[in-house]
Nucleic acid binder design. Structure first.
Lengths: 139, 139
DNA sequence: TATTAATTGATAAATATTATCATATTGAAA
DNA sequence: TTTCAATATGATAATATTTATCAATTAATA
């Protein structure tokens, strides 16, 4: 439940935060701050853009959501804070979750002295929709 | 050789392009457009910021360099266009190459109809320098 | 060398994000 | 409950990054 997520993070429960988490929950689109703002504005006309950014940053900081750097144009947000990987369409930039637990071992001599704490895999490809569109035209 | 790289890409050989590729070659820092601009400006005072962006985008488009989306603040560029992975320091955001050939199999039922053509792994950790700094302080 | 098509550089514009701060709201204490 | 301090919001300004525009310049070739 969203209320719990906010409480657990030690944050105050505000309608704005609930609206953002409500929109994010079950959202598979990995929306940008603007996407979120626009979507919520319809039901919540007083929502400010700044609040969207504030809230997203706060939630990320508290580990309640994930910020994705996949899109070179803008940040995108993932309601699932647990480690998982992503499947990205090279054409339309659609992003899907992909849950596979790979055991990626890095030999000591390749660690460059780093202490490795996690990883994230981006799989690139072409989504079904774009493949259809492409088959209808020449390259 | 840089000249070849440019020729092969079907591009005109300009001093600006040479300067950028020269700076990028053997550079392990994965610099941003601004880093590149500033560094080159010292030896090449007429270089324009727009040209840096133009050139980087053109080179990327032709497959001569890689654009990294690892840094949420800005794009960073990698002189090595061949697939490889990256090791990122969570603290100072230093980025190092990591060359390991993992065979990442994605079962058909997890592909969501995508045709997968590649992948990129980001390993997160703390670099030796930051570990040292951290050991000297409380969290 | 002359030609032309590509490239550069100056600058403006667009986009995305962060900062500022007065006002409003939440949650806890009285 | 009401009160109050800390936190959050919303309006807006500021900053940062990237892209677009376009006249002037330059590279490649004929």
């Amino acid at each position: 439940m969203d209320r719990q997520k906010i409480k657990e993070a030690g944050l105050k429960l505000t309608p704005q935060r609930l609206a953002i988490l409500d929109y994010l929950r079950d959202n598979l689109e990995h929306p940008s701050a603007e996407d979120i703002y626009k979507a919520i504005l319809e039901r919540f006309p007083t929502m400010s853009f700044a609040t969207v950014y504030n809230t997203l940053e706060t939630l990320r900081e508290k580990g309640a959501i994930q910020e994705l750097t996949i899109d070179p144009q803008k940040k995108r947000f993932d309601p699932n804070p647990r480690p998982h990987h992503h499947l990205i369409c090279n054409r339309c930039k659609k992003i899907l979750d992909i849950h596979i637990d790979y055991q990626l071992h890095v030999p000591e001599e390749k660690k460059n002295g780093f202490e490795i704490v996690g990883n994230h895999i981006e799989f690139y490809g072409i989504c079904p929709g774009c493949r259809l569109k492409m088959s209808g035209m020449q390259s």
